[in-house]
Computed example of a mutant assay.
Amino acid sequence: MIIIIYRESFLSVSEKDQFEEQLSVEIRFCINSDGYILECNKKGQALVERYGPYFLHFFPDHTACEAKDYLDAIMKSDDIVSALLCDKLSDRDLGTLYNGISKDGKIILVGYRTQMFTHLAGEIVHELRNPLTVIKGFIQLCGYTKEYDKYQPVILSEIDRMYTILENFLTLSLRKSKCQRMNPDEVCKSLISLLSAECVVNKVRLDYDIAYSESVCKIDLDKIKQVMINLLRNALEAFDEHTGEKKIMFRGSVEDNGYRFSLIDNGPGMETDVLNNLGKPLFTTKAKGTGIGLSLCKKIIADHQGTFCISSVNGKGTTVSFFLPFVSP
């Protein structure tokens, strides 16, 4: 039996940069009155390196005149001037929305690629879908059991999580964490109720094995919940009609210097070429997927100074796990 290991490491520098670029939507320039770029941010520098330091060279001939008229309008105005300009990268989206103002004889531009807005919208939809799925599952359970009071606290906590997600995206503050020292086995126990509700609704058998830990980890509980719900949802969506009894195992285990959280399914597994690309931003095999879920998970675990691992046996199932290091007493 061949087990394919995808990766167990910190988020690589290139992946981290690529992910951060999805959240950094601004292209900033300081341009002189002749159209030459004096200063720019990292995203602006990428355009300068590709097309040169002259702003009008960013645009094909048939739209360069519109860009020139836009710069002229900024110099003549005392207010912010906006325009959607179709540059040489616009074959991938509508173009770049620029807001510009004249200051001390220079032009200050802030641009936003419409493709970036599409990515951010996909991320928001993806992350809000998770708590909504949990809420739906618990409401369905309430319909089965009539035990509304029993599930109300979890439903309310997921609604609070939705507010938190919205606040994070409104301030582009996904990098901020509210970590606290927690026993990882207690974290596992708090996750079981979320996982079990989803599995009951989807008619999947859930088993769990949680090892006690005397040591603690620094954990942002909301972010770890976000990771686990993402992983569970991926596992549930991977099951197909060929799977007999659908089973998921949730395991918490103590390892040297840290604690491992694992989710193991008996689904169809994955091919090697899929594993090689899995977790890259915007890569997905789902018809309606955004390709963002796993890259978000990897970044959250990297922010916890942890590692992320996926292993799969084609036709047998997949194991996804993440490791969080212990902290000193």
Rank of each mutant, 00 (worst) to 15 (best):
I108C: 07
G111H: 05
Y112G: 09
Y112N: 09
R113L: 14
R113D: 11
T114H: 03
T114K: 13
Q115I: 11
Q115S: 15
Q115A: 13
Q115H: 15
M116A: 13
M116N: 14
F117N: 05
F117T: 13
F117R: 04
F117S: 08
T118Q: 11
T118R: 13
H119V: 11
H119W: 11
L120P: 01
L120E: 14
G122C: 07
E123A: 11
V125I: 14
V125Q: 15
H126I: 01
E127M: 15
L128A: 00
R129P: 15
N130E: 15
N130H: 07
P131F: 09
L132G: 08
T133G: 09
T133C: 10
V134K: 03
V134L: 09
K136L: 11
K136Q: 14
K136P: 02
G137Y: 05
G137W: 02
G137Q: 07
Q140C: 06
Q140T: 14
L141A: 02
L141C: 01
C142R: 01
Y144F: 05
T145P: 10
K146L: 03
E147W: 01
Y148M: 00
D149P: 00
K150M: 10
K150G: 11
K150W: 02
K150V: 06
Y151T: 07
Q152S: 14
P153C: 06
V154W: 07
V154M: 12
L156T: 15
L156E: 08
S157M: 02
E158S: 07
I159C: 14
I159H: 03
D160T: 03
D160N: 07
R161I: 08
R161E: 08
M162W: 02
M162F: 03
Y163S: 03
T164G: 07
T164W: 02
I165V: 04
I165Q: 04
L166G: 04
E167N: 12
E167P: 00
N168D: 13
F169H: 03
F169N: 06
F169S: 02
T171L: 04
T171I: 01
L172Q: 05
L172S: 07
S173C: 00
S173Q: 01
L174E: 05
L174Q: 03
L174D: 12
K176Y: 05
K176N: 11
K176A: 07
S177F: 11
K178G: 14
K178W: 15
R181H: 09
M182C: 14
M182H: 13
M182P: 07
N183W: 10
D185F: 04
E186V: 15
V187F: 10
V187L: 11
C188S: 11
C188P: 04
K189C: 10
K189N: 12
K189P: 08
L191F: 13
L191S: 06
I192K: 06
I192E: 12
I192H: 12
L194P: 05
L194I: 09
L194A: 06
L195V: 01
L195M: 14
L195Q: 06
A197G: 15
A197C: 15
A197P: 12
C199I: 03
